[in-house]
Design a protein around this nucleic acid. Structure first.
Lengths: 244, 244
DNA sequence: CGGAAGATTGAAGAAACTCAATTTGTGTGG
DNA sequence: CCACACAAATTGAGTTTCTTCAATCTTCCG
């Protein structure tokens, strides 16, 4: 018992979370963190292939990825699937559900994962009391819009090669923001899922991986990818969208 | 003077605004509306071709379109422009700027327009006091994410013909939500701007307009477009994305 | 170790793009 | 009000890019 309570006080708190600089509680003081801590239901496990929520589910809680990787996909009226995000550690899922109190997207774990759940109604109550948390939450929502615009730019302006390059760079930068080496990327998603996300067919994605490999920008070993020349990859993206 | 004050009390209030069911103040009571009213700076004019804000400008105020039409476009590091939205009456602009306190996008008036400006810091203060307004604001932010996902679906899964059809349907539905006839659409944007938004070249957009016209779904007269067969246009979009 | 799913590569086809010419629309000054 | 000039839109022909179809090859589990 003593051990359990020790562990829970040590590990299961936002204040000790290694993701607190990325996740919701960024920039809160100890008292504010304590209030938030009370709300958060931590370390719910979601195994690879399982859904955390599905489109149509009522919004109960927002979820932050603690460990692992998810894909969020929406299904159109015509039945087509479109992946809208690949959330990783520290990223929130379900923000688009606030609008209608119902999830638009489906959240599927790509590998065994853990999430922290934050009951949304309770969170909104807390936001009224804690202006800094409120502002932080607005920044998160706004940032999600900005991320989506970034993807629109990729989808709307880039060729297949640039899309794949931008995809890898995006992952690299997000890994780096978490203190991990940006050069080594383990892709938990298939070529088909990457293609769906980027508006390409899986064969095209595969071809572009091969091309980037042949050009010496990356090294591929199945789903393990290493960025060999980050600067060149970045240049490729920049100059690529410049010719318009 | 008496007339002026009469007019201002009659016209220049959210409570009398014809857009209150679409814009921010949805579902507020009289007292809450009054508090919001105090913040809003109304009827700032922006003439066609003028910018309301530009990327890099510090976020001072969110802006709601009162009359007219805007385009929001972002410029990538490589210099490519991507239009991310065409806001019309009742729609908010600048939500993506909260994240970094700086505008990401540029807001250009496509026709002579009027906007209501809401100082953002003051708004956040008010949100803490008015839970219903806070919730409404969160719904708006969340809805913006949902809209973006809808566009991603269009960009990622649809052919040129379907993209244009979906674009027209989107406009039609938004007009209808404002009590205007959904069949008659005056497009304030050029073919090139439509193409930029949809990830197509202007010639392709033109061709698809012609195709939809030849198929009897729409009638075109320059930028004036009439939807002749709404149901068929909708079917086209649905079945189109089903084959995957 | 064997089977199935995922990934790669090739060749042929379709979709959208580029380049170019023509037509239409718009606004301005005579 | 018309004529002119300029910008936008349309249409055509040829090319590029991506997709489709198909055949391997690899990886990952049981």
């Amino acid at each position: 018992m003593a051990v359990t309570s020790f562990e829970s006080s040590l590990r299961q708190r936002c204040s000790n979370c290694s993701l607190r600089e990325i996740c919701l509680p960024l920039g809160l003081d100890a008292e504010e963190l304590g209030r938030l801590d009370e709300l958060v239901k931590r370390r719910r496990r979601v195994f690879a292939g399982q859904h955390l929520f599905r489109a149509g589910d009522p919004l109960q809680a927002l979820a932050a990825v603690r460990t692992g990787f998810f894909k969020i996909y929406e299904v159109s009226a015509g039945g087509h699937e479109q992946i809208t995000a690949f959330p990783m550690e520290g990223e929130l899922m379900g923000l688009d559900a606030i609008s209608a109190d119902v999830h638009r997207g489906n959240a599927l774990a790509l590998e065994d994962s853990e999430v922290c759940e934050i009951p949304f109604t309770k969170l909104e109550g807390l936001l009224s009391d804690l202006p800094r948390l409120q502002h932080q939450f607005h920044k998160l929502l706004s940032g999600a819009i900005g991320n989506d615009h970034g993807l629109m730019m990729v989808l709307g302006t880039m060729t297949a090669e640039l899309k794949v390059a931008a995809f890898l760079l995006n992952l690299a930068d997000r890994l780096e923001a978490r203190g991990q080496p940006r050069a080594i990327i383990h892709l938990p998603m298939s070529r088909e899922e990457i293609g769906n996300y980027l508006g390409l067919k899986l064969e095209t994605v595969s071809r572009m991986f091969s091309k980037l490999r042949d050009d010496g920008l990356i090294v591929t070993e199945g789903r393990k990818t290493e960025i060999r020349n980050y600067a060149a990859l970045k240049d490729l993206c920049l100059q690529g969208s410049a010719h318009a």
